[in-house]
Every structure is written in C-alpha cells, then in structure tokens.
Design a protein around this nucleic acid. Structure first.
Length: 432
RNA sequence: GGAGAGGUGGCCGAGUGGUUUAAGGCGGCUGUCUUGAAAACAGUUGAGUGAAAGCUCCGGGGGUUCGAAUCCCUCCCUCUCCGCCA
C-alpha cells in the first residue's frame, strides 16, 4: 500500500506511474472519497469534543433541571455523532479497499517498458562445464532413472503433480539443506520454520490479496490460505509490531513448500517439473531501515547468485522493466538459470525491494534510536532458490551421455559423498 | 471436543458507569548531587490521525447510556484440568 498522502498531493505523478506500469488503479475514486472523508471527520470530531465536555458537565452539575437539559442536548448530539461515525466507518473501509488495489510505484531507475520484452539482461555468467552432446530434457531421464514419477503423481493428486523418488527426493533434500546452511552460515540469516496455512490478513499484508485471490489455495472454511511462498508468513512475523531501530536489519530464511493455483492455459509448461501446484523453495526475507533498502537489494541479489555460483550453473540477471513489475515491487531483478535440455532460461529467483509497501499493509514499524516518530520499515525478499527448477538445471547441465547425471561438488557432502545419480531400483508392489 | 479462570500502557498491576481515558510500582530517558558510578531526590516516558485545537485506542466486533476499561451480546486468544492425538 502506498501512502494516501502521495495520491492526495501528487495525483498526476501517480497517474503517470500507473501508465508506466501498464496498469490501472481507482485514483479518482480514492481522491473523492478521501476529500469527503476528511470533511466528515472534521465535523464529527468537533461534535465529539462538545459531547465530551457536556458529559463531564453532567457529572458535575447538581441542579436536576439543568442536568436533564444537558442530557437531552447530549442525546441529540449523540444521534448525530452515531450517524456521522457510521459514515466515516463506511468511507474508511471503502477507501482502504481501493487503496489495496493500488500497486507499488517503481523506483526511478527501473527501466520503462510495456512488457517483459523490455526486461534487460544485465549480467550473464557461464558455467565451466558444458555438455558437448545433445542434452535430453529432465522429464525423459527423470523417468528413465526412476527419480521422478509423473504418472503416480497425477494419479494421486491430479494434473501438475509429480513424485520425487529415491536419489531424486534425496537430492532435493540435500539442496535445501545446503542452501539453508549457506544463508545462515555465510549470509547472516536466521532459519525459521513457519506455518504453511495462514490467516487471510497475512496475504493482504504481503500483497497477494485482495487482487490475486484466484491464484491461491484456501481451506474449505475460507479462513486460512496455503502459502504461495514463505515470504507471506516470514514477512508477517513482525506484523503490528514496533521494532527498535537497533534490531534492524532482520534477515530470515525459510524452507517451505509453496502452493499456487496457476491460471495458465492447459498445455503450457505442462511437461516436466517446471511448474506445479506445489513446489519447494528456500526464501530470504529482509526487514531493514528505509535508508538501507537499495543497498540491501543489491546484497540480496548477490546472495541469490551465490547459490547458483556454488552449484556452478550458467545463469543470467534480468532487470525487470516497469510494465513487467509485480504488483508489490518497486524494483525487481530475476535470476534465470540456463537449462540445455528444455533449451530455455528458467526463472529460479525474484529479488524484490518493496520499500514500505508491505510494511504499510502489515503495519511493521520501527522506533528511531534517538527518539522521534515511529516509521515504516522496508521489506525485501528473494528466492534462494526455487527447488524444482534447480533440479532441472542440475539434471540437464550435469548430464552425462548415458542419461545419468553428476551431483554438484558442494552437494556431494550432503549426499554422503555420492558423486552421481544413476538408475534407481525397481518400483511397484512387487518390491513391497 | 468438555469444564473453569483470565486478557489493562515496554513489563507488573489498580481500576466495576462520571468530578484524572488509566492509580501505584518496575524499566527507560533527563536533571540535581558526585572525581566517576551507585544510591537518593525531582521531572519525564505509548500509538494513530490532524497544521493545530482536538478526536480515537484498556484482546476484536456489536449493543445499552447524556457518558463505558467498567454493564450486555458475540468472536478470538492465553492459562489450568479432563478427553483425543503425530
């Protein structure tokens, strides 16, 4: 949520930002609601001041007649106040609902462009190893090796689900552990394990609601939602809190499963494990002083890069332009890994700076050390990283001509020294 | 799931309809004193909104009343006991 004052004081600046974002928001409705709200608030508050004074006088007055007079006067006043209070309450609610639909404003250095075609590659890093044969897509060798079971995944959970098996499941677990160790031991993060099912307000706080309800999974009563990313519970950890400035910055990292109801056309990205309703991810979340968020964003990107460099995978950085910026972000840089089997760049991380957008929604503040008014913190987050696509990248970049693949060096200690993944044992009831 | 108790300012805790919308204590900050510190003493110390006056906030929401932390309804949460359970 952006500051209502910005819309009130610089409506034209906001309108042109919306054009750059290639989106719309109900700015005019907000402005007119705000104006009428302010007028009614002023009225009702002076009425309340009079009532407070009058009611105190009732307590002091001994004279019965005068007392009755005052009470009657205050009663009439009270009806007026109740009506206006209700008016303010309704207006407040409408105003907030509209405000929740206004996207974050991009930072000045975000390149302007209508859509993803204007995103800019700002860095490309090659890997030392490069297969010199035709690499087969991960879904082929995954099935062949018996580490991914697509059929049984769909059988038990429907489309866009799969089962990892044997060394496949083990490799993913090893990657998660290594990533968490990297962030906690090298990057100064604290590991947290949050709930996967959270209250509605949490998704409003981080910006998934109210606008993107259709991409979320919710429980049957509708009171709780499956998290689409660890960003939701981990950022909201501090909701409605006033932190001490000395506590900043706060770096938290979490591994969670993530659940997304993808609204994409059937048939797109359906092959393999690139896009499922459930996937695993290690997430990094930063709560920082507002003056520090720009430099923290740069560090966050570096920390995500460290994961790819550690795994020795080829990747590139993509500066997202205004038209492709997500609703909540003021700036966003994606990390994409190259996968030769599917022959495409796969997004494995989005590193975003939200400024105070989420902090306003979730009401996360800090108290300046020298005193003074409380202020909103800035929040940032980035994947570090998304597991299925890293699995794809490893299976394809580390592939050997015989359809097996090697395990990245940094992961080998997490796999008991194992260096390669080959065909798994037979599956099926016969084994049991 | 059943029974009972309770939710007040950073913390503890008083307050059961008005004459202080929050006593008192702890902690924090400032000052006096001191070579410095401690102690003592004095003052000060929440959030939101607003240019300010003011208004709002005693778990959330609703109600009664001229007036609610205080009475009523409802929801949430915490604690104790029982039941169930990975």
């Amino acid at each position: 949520m952006i500051d209502l004052k910005i819309i009130r004081d610089q409506p034209d600046m906001v309108r042109s930002a919306l054009v750059a974002l290639n989106t719309t928001a109900p700015i005019d409705e907000i402005l007119s609601l705000d104006a009428s709200r302010r007028q009614v608030v002023t009225e009702v508050e002076s009425l309340k001041a009079r009532r407070n004074e009058g009611s105190k006088e009732v307590g002091r007055t001994k004279d019965a007649e005068r007392r009755a007079e005052l009470i009657e006067e205050m009663r009439v006043l009270g009806d007026d106040i109740a009506a206006k209070d209700e008016q303010v309450r309704v207006t407040d609610e409408e105003l907030r609902n509209l405000l929740l639909l206004v996207p974050n404003l991009p930072l000045p250095d975000v390149p302007v462009g209508p859509d993803e075609s204007h995103n800019a590659v700002t860095k490309t890093v090659e890997a030392e190893r490069k297969p010199d044969f035709t690499v087969r897509p991960h879904w082929e060798i995954g099935e062949e090796l018996g580490i991914i079971d697509f059929e049984r995944g769909v059988k038990i959970a429907g489309t866009r689900n799969y089962v990892l098996r044997g060394d496949g499941a083990r490799l993913q677990r090893a990657l998660i552990t290594w990533m968490l160790d990297l962030h906690t031991q090298k990057h100064g993060y604290t590991e947290v394990y949050p709930p996967y099912l959270v209250l509605t307000e949490m998704l409003v706080g981080t910006g998934q609601l109210p606008k993107f309800a259709e991409t979320q999974f919710r429980d049957i009563e509708g009171e709780k939602w499956l998290i689409p990313t660890a960003e939701v519970p981990v950022t909201n950890l501090y909701r409605d809190e006033i932190l001490d400035e000395a506590e900043l910055p706060i770096y938290n990292t979490a591994y969670t499963a993530c659940f997304r109801r993808e609204q994409i056309s059937a048939g797109r990205d359906v092959r393999g494990i690139k896009r499922g309703y459930q996937f695993d991810k290690v997430e990094m979340v930063k709560i920082v002083h507002p003056e520090k968020s720009i430099e923290e964003h740069a560090r966050l990107i570096q920390e995500a890069e460290d994961v790819l460099m550690g795994l020795e995978l080829p990747y590139r950085l993509l500066q997202i332009c205004t038209g492709d910026l997500s609703f909540t972000a003021a700036n966003k840089v994606d990390l994409e890994v190259w996968s030769p089997g599917v022959a495409e760049w796969l997004e494995v991380s989005s590193c975003s700076n939200f400024l105070e957008f989420q902090a306003r929604r979730a009401n996360i503040k800090f108290r300046p050390t020298g005193g003074g008014r409380t202020q909103f913190v800035h929040t940032l987050n980035g994947s570090g990283l998304a597991l299925p696509r890293i699995m794809i990248a490893i299976m394809e970049n580390y592939q050997l001509p015989d359809g097996t693949f090697e395990i990245p060096r940094v992961i080998q200690p997490y796999m008991g020294g194992q260096t390669q993944i080959g065909k798994q044992g037979p599956i099926g009831p016969a084994r049991v």
